[in-house]
Simulated assay, not measured.
Amino acid sequence: MDISFKTAEGRFNYRVGGLIVHDNKLLIMQDQGQPYYYVPGGRIKMNEKSEDAVKREIKEELGVEVTVKRMLWVNENFFKEETLNEQFHEICFFYLLELEDEKLLKNNEFVVDEEGKIHTYFWKTLNELKLINLYPQFLREKIVELPLHIKHIVVT
């Protein structure tokens, strides 16, 4: 069971995000019909370690294995989702990942159908990230200098 629930005040999510960086480019994704981009990842399941969750999510979404290098950020994020018009309270652990297979490096853009959900993936240069609607927004600036130790970021 995913650790996500809805209340009268909004929705809570406990999730992971995976940063895959190659040749000064970050792998990001966009859901069909959505105006924003984000990094691959997803919700953590009950009794699942966050590190296991990020590996599972990448395998489910992209069909590849990854190695977790280290956790970068713990992000407490409070936001209103644009298309759902729903208030969110989200805790996300962001991990730096390394691909175990180079098949994702062949195209700068590719589409994946995940059980009827259409995701388009893009390799964007770190400079390009500053110009697009990437969430959470702190990634646009923080991606250029990855922390050596876990940082806690709160976005309200």
Rank of each mutant, 00 (worst) to 15 (best):
V74S: 12
T67A: 05
D31G: 00
F78Y: 15
F78I: 15
N133S: 11
I58D: 03
L129Q: 08
P136M: 13
Q87A: 08
R15K: 14
G17F: 10
L134C: 13
P136H: 13
F79L: 05
V64C: 07
E57G: 02
L26D: 08
G63R: 06
R43S: 10
T7N: 03
I58K: 02
W123C: 09
K124E: 11
L19D: 08
N24M: 04
F12E: 03
N13C: 05
V54L: 02
E128R: 09
K69A: 01
R56S: 02
E86R: 15
K55L: 00
Q30F: 04
E98G: 02
K124A: 10
N75D: 14
K45E: 13
G41D: 02
N13L: 12
T125N: 11
G41W: 02
S50Y: 08
W123T: 04
L96A: 09
G10F: 11
L84M: 10
T125H: 06
K55A: 03
I28Q: 14
E114S: 14
E60V: 07
V16Q: 07
M46P: 02
V39R: 12
L97F: 10
F88E: 06
L126D: 01
D113S: 11
F94A: 10
L72S: 08
W73G: 07
E90Y: 06
E100I: 00
Y135D: 07
W123A: 01
E9H: 08
D31F: 03
L72R: 04
N47A: 08
E109G: 12
F122Y: 15
N24P: 06
R11S: 09
L62M: 07
E48K: 06
V39G: 10
H22L: 01
N108W: 03
K55D: 03
L131K: 15
M46G: 00
L99R: 04
L26Y: 07
L62N: 00
L131C: 02
N47R: 12
F122N: 04
E98T: 05
I91P: 02
E90F: 10
E48P: 00
D101Y: 01
E109Y: 11
I58T: 05
D23L: 05
G42R: 04
K117A: 07
Y121H: 08
D113H: 10
E51V: 13
K117E: 01
K103R: 07
Y38V: 11
Y121G: 08
N13E: 11
E100A: 00
A53K: 06
L99H: 03
E98M: 00
L126Q: 05
E98A: 04
N107M: 05
L72A: 06
E86C: 13
F122M: 04
F12Q: 07
E81R: 10
V39H: 12
F78L: 11
G63W: 08
T125F: 10
D23K: 08
Y14C: 06
N133M: 05
V66H: 07
E102I: 05
K130M: 10
E9S: 14
I28M: 13
G41F: 04
R15Q: 15
A8F: 03
N13R: 14
Y38D: 07
R43E: 10
N108F: 11
N13G: 03
V111E: 13
C92V: 15
K45W: 09
M29S: 01
R70Y: 07
